[in-house]
Write a protein that binds this DNA or RNA. Structure first.
Lengths: 339, 339
DNA sequence: GTGAAAGCGCTAACAA
DNA sequence: TTGTTAGCGCTTTCAC
């Protein structure tokens, strides 16, 4: 890669002049400007952003830490964030933690070392102690997809989403409404499960632990077949008492649950209604179309990154933006004839 | 962020000594070593990788250019590459081109500016002219998911995959086998379509253009509903003559096609068999399970990145690694009773 | 309008 | 064992 020094030599000017031309500063004679531009083109000059970063103390880099990029929902977020960043002249260093706290810690340190101007994170565990020490760093830091009590954050109200699903199922006449998903989230309550419970209460339905099918949380690789396995196990128990409708904590789990129920000769939605959470692109492609809660992914990515920019420019205090979940009703909870 | 200079001052040693300690070089007295370590810890020192990069002329950064990260298949690749890179002490700058050649060009230049040591790319168009000029740059460059005649590359043999699908369908007794997908790929032939045609030939079946449902290529956003729309249009035409089996060029298109067929009261696979390509995680979750071609994603990511490392270390010439596709048979092409 | 020079944080060669 | 120094490529101040 050529440098300003090389261009300067070729063009017979000083390196400072080359810098002025490349950066479009005024006060350079037209003759030299042209000469420099000419040589820059000939040598296919690309400014060294590393040197610029060092000198300017500005990297135009932001760190994006994702818990599990294999999940299409998070992939969509990466998409939205990268797009918005590029539009603002920023690049993204991507770190995937696979829901591993240790990796998350390391990623944060690496990104700091890389002089990112800020970090956008989907935390593995929003209450992990290591996050508290970041607070002191005064490193712009925005949490997305979960509401944080420590940092600025943008997320949908998960509990409310859970309530909405229960209300929908209850409105359809279901009184035995179950839940498929983790009950805890890295030691803390899982908001969707809380929403499920408060939703039952609002519909004057009893909480019945028999209708709960607990799965592991979002461990990658594992998660893939976990909901299927758990539902399957549940159905194999002789004395399992079934609900007539289930709320699965995300779309992937819902799909797996449907598969497990159908493999046991229950029809969805005729015998059992199922709803998910996330409205991934598959929710509408799948047969039956999946009733689910839509999270405004693009908004989360877009708003999250802009909050980060605001913090970088020191214009803003921490703020938690809670977005409204939206219920998308499809065939999986409706009486639906398979042609 | 603290610097070596600050530590040096606190510890009462020279900045060079701090550097020696931080980098674990020998020849520092135990006393000073401890002192420096102590202060580094206290000040939460993180080495400035930008300065290191500039000095060492080594960034430990690689660029990853993806055409469409919303596609779960590509997201899996990002996952595999990031993991392998992290294991080797590298970070990833991610650029998503949305299949836009202009963005691809800009991404390459940005990454060069960022001093990445090499680029791993899923090109929007493997034959685009701008790629030729990269050849001269002697920038380590590896193409993945497609075989390149210009660069080192790692991919599955798409044409062969197409052939395998056709053979499978033909073996099942189908004689009217159709294709759903783009016919061209940015002006060039789509390998899967070529494979489809040669597969027909090998099974002694006539090519019949009536069985072709052409869709747009992989434009993001658009692609989402494109196959559904095209199949739907096709079925609405009074005089459409249907095949009994279709090969869809990727899983997403296959899902959409299934939806369209079912919306027109055709059952899959009883009335029409459908196969996809990619073996995305949904292929097995979906009902019916989708017969598809599996690409060894992790292998592609893993091998691709290691080829790039080899090129960075100047140990290797260009090489094209062609991986074997694998047919995964599921319900969508078999006689399958929906419970 | 232009060039010389300092300095961003670091590594490594050299000297002591 | 330790400190001094040059220099990576760039931006910017200062002097001419």
């Amino acid at each position: 890669m050529s440098t300003m020094e090389e261009i300067a030599e070729k063009a017979g000017v000083s390196q400072a002049t080359v810098s002025r031309v490349i950066n479009g500063h005024s006060g350079v004679s037209e003759r030299k400007r042209k000469l420099v531009m000419e040589w820059a083109r000939k040598l296919d000059y690309q400014p060294n952003r590393t040197a610029q970063s060092l000198k300017n103390n500005k990297s135009n880099l932001i760190g994006l830490i994702i818990s599990d990029i294999s999940n299409p929902y998070f992939a969509e977020i990466v998409h939205a964030v990268e797009k918005e960043a590029a539009k603002n002249g920023y690049n993204i260093i991507l770190c995937n933690t696979e829901n591993n706290i240790q990796k998350e810690k390391e990623s944060i340190n690496t990104l700091r070392s890389r002089q990112v101007e800020g970090i956008l994170i989907v935390p593995s565990d929003k209450s992990a102690p290591h996050l508290k020490s970041i607070k002191k760093l005064n490193l712009p830091f925005v949490v997305i997809t979960q509401i944080s009590d420590l940092f600025a954050s943008v997320a949908v109200d998960h509990a409310k989403g859970g309530e909405m699903v229960v209300k929908h199922l209850s409105d359809l006449g279901h009184t035995k409404i179950g839940y498929i998903g983790p009950l805890k989230y890295a030691g803390y309550t899982e908001d969707k499960f809380e929403g499920y419970k408060s939703g039952l209460k609002k519909s004057n339905l009893e909480f019945n632990s028999e209708y709960i099918i607990e799965t592991d949380g979002g461990m990658p690789e594992l998660s893939s077949q976990n909901a299927y396995k758990k539902v399957n196990q549940f159905l194999n128990q002789a004395n399992s008492s079934l609900a007539t409708a289930y709320f699965a904590y995300n779309d992937l789990a819902a799909f797996e649950a449907i598969k497990a129920f159908e493999d046991h000769n229950y029809k969805v939605p005729e015998d059992i209604a199922i709803a998910g959470f996330d409205n991934t692109s598959l929710a509408q492609i799948n047969r039956p179309g999946l009733t689910t809660i839509s999270q405004p992914i693009k908004t989360i990515g877009h708003v999250g990154l802009n909050m980060l920019f605001d913090k970088i420019n020191k214009n803003k205090d921490d703020e938690n933006i809670i977005l409204e979940p939206q219920l998308i009703v499809r065939e999986s909870t409706l009486k639906y004839r398979r042609s």
